[in-house]
């Protein structure tokens, strides 16, 4: 390059006005420009490394150390042994299975309702708005409202009485507390799954639907053979977000509605971690966190797969 330029010294390499002065101090500007991508991503990387990745590593490390007088002392797997023999941990683990059973229920309810709205039943716009409204409300508010609604002397039991059904202390009995909280959670969040479904529906190829109709497919066949395959990405996404929401988004409801009770009947991992931390057992709480992490990891890897596909550009 230099040789080439040198062979034709009479030809100016750049004839734009101001090019010479721009060339006079090219170094500094050049490096600032070159550093631009790093300057732009640096705050994000710094925050995530310091407040997400570092605590994660610290927490895993914590989980192998002791609490109180053993603070900071390596105790191997003792925390995990303590945890696996703790009744509250057993309750939380059992409840995770109950939670996972409620996931398909929420997805199904949202999917069916989204289909109806997509088919433009009378008043579909209104329904869409109403169903989504609880999503913006805080779990604290929802919990406060449903504490009253589900109380032993609350309106739901008034309905039960009127229909001749037994009066149930929904939140006070160990077999109904968690299902009640999960029911309220579904009430509060199915609107979210619903709008995600609707976003998916809007991408279904209209020509495929027309083709199905011309071929004489029934509504059921159209849904089964055209809509569901077209929506597979959306359905996966709803499953993953609903599952994560149920495993990590119920703290507010538990906190206001049952406080994990009665006994440990409505404990979930997130509540157990919070509780153990509050009992000055941070190391034990960290062990519980690691267990929750492993659980979330399986679901999260699915999530990454789904999300990566949605941003092919990167």
């Amino acid at each position: 390059m230099t040789a080439l330029l040198g062979s034709r010294p009479d030809v100016p390499t750049d004839v734009r006005p101001g090019a010479a002065s721009a060339k006079r101090r090219p170094r500094r500007r050049f490096t600032l420009e070159r550093a631009a991508p790093l300057v732009l991503v640096f705050p994000a990387i710094a925050i995530l490394l310091v407040f997400r990745v570092y605590p994660l590593a610290l927490g895993v490390n914590f989980s192998f150390t002791g609490d109180q007088e053993l603070n900071g002392v390596f105790i191997g797997l003792d925390n995990y042994v303590t945890l696996f023999t703790d009744v509250r941990f057993h309750a939380a683990a059992r409840n995770v299975i109950v939670v996972l059973l409620f996931v398909p229920l929420e997805v199904l309810v949202a999917g069916i309702l989204a289909t109806f709205i997509f088919l433009k039943v009378p008043g579909h716009r209104f329904y869409r708005s109403v169903y989504f409204l609880p999503v913006v409300l805080s779990p604290i508010i929802i919990g406060a409202i449903f504490n009253i609604v589900l109380a032993a002397n609350g309106p739901l039991n008034d309905v039960n009485k009127a229909l001749g059904l037994p009066v149930i202390d929904w939140l006070g009995q160990s077999n109904s507390a968690l299902p009640s909280v999960l029911g309220v959670h579904i009430w509060a969040t199915f609107g979210m799954a619903l709008v995600i479904f609707l976003a998916g529906f809007s991408t279904v190829d209209q020509e495929l639907l027309d083709a199905a109709r011309i071929d004489g497919a029934s509504l059921g066949q159209t849904i089964w053979y055209v809509v569901i395959p077209e929506l597979s990405q959306t359905i996966q996404f709803v499953f993953v977000t609903t599952t994560i929401g149920m495993l990590t988004g119920i703290f507010g409801l538990l906190y206001t509605m049952t406080a994990g009770g009665p006994g440990a009947a409505s404990y979930l991992p997130e509540f157990l971690i919070w509780k153990l931390n509050g009992e000055a057992k941070p190391a034990l709480a960290s062990a519980a966190s690691v267990v929750l992490l492993l659980l979330i990891l399986v679901i999260g890897l699915l999530q990454i797969r789904v999300l990566r596909r949605a941003t092919k550009e990167v």
């Binding site: 997400r52 994660l56 495993l247 990590t248 997130e270 690691v290 990454i304 999300l307």
Partner: peptide, 12 residues
Amino acid sequence: AMMIPFQVIMVP
């Protein structure tokens, strides 16, 4: 970072 819920890292 998106995958790690706050509950998992709350103590540390």
